[in-house]
């Protein structure tokens, strides 16, 4: 069993209205000094086999085909 974590974040330059709203809420809670918040997604994926190279290749393909919209998002795959 191999476990992986996929982190999907918005590309630089893509407006993140939800991140902006979170920034506003943090400042409403009196947290000072927050320059920027960008919201993303995390996917924890477990695969059945123990072939690390195959798992990494498969999960990268999953990101390209479904988990990330590469028009607006970047992704990072970490085997854990």
């Amino acid at each position: 069993m191999i476990k992986a974590r996929v982190i999907v974040t918005l590309k630089n330059g893509v407006l993140d209205p939800q991140g902006k709203a979170i920034e506003g809420a943090l400042s409403a809670l009196s947290f000072s000094g927050v320059d920027q918040v960008r919201q993303g997604k995390v996917f924890d994926i477990a695969v059945e086999h123990d072939d690390k190279a195959k798992a990494e290749a498969d999960i990268n393909a999953m990101c390209e085909k479904l988990l990330a919209n590469t028009v607006i998002e970047d992704y990072k795959v970490e085997l854990v």
């Binding site: 893509v14 407006l15 209205p17 028009v71």
Partner: peptide, 17 residues
């Protein structure tokens, strides 16, 4: 259609949220 790649670009959350 955008997600399928038939048209370019993406639709994000409304700026007003």
């Amino acid at each position: 259609l955008l997600e399928a790649g038939l048209l370019p670009g993406a639709l994000m959350r409304n700026a007003s949220l």
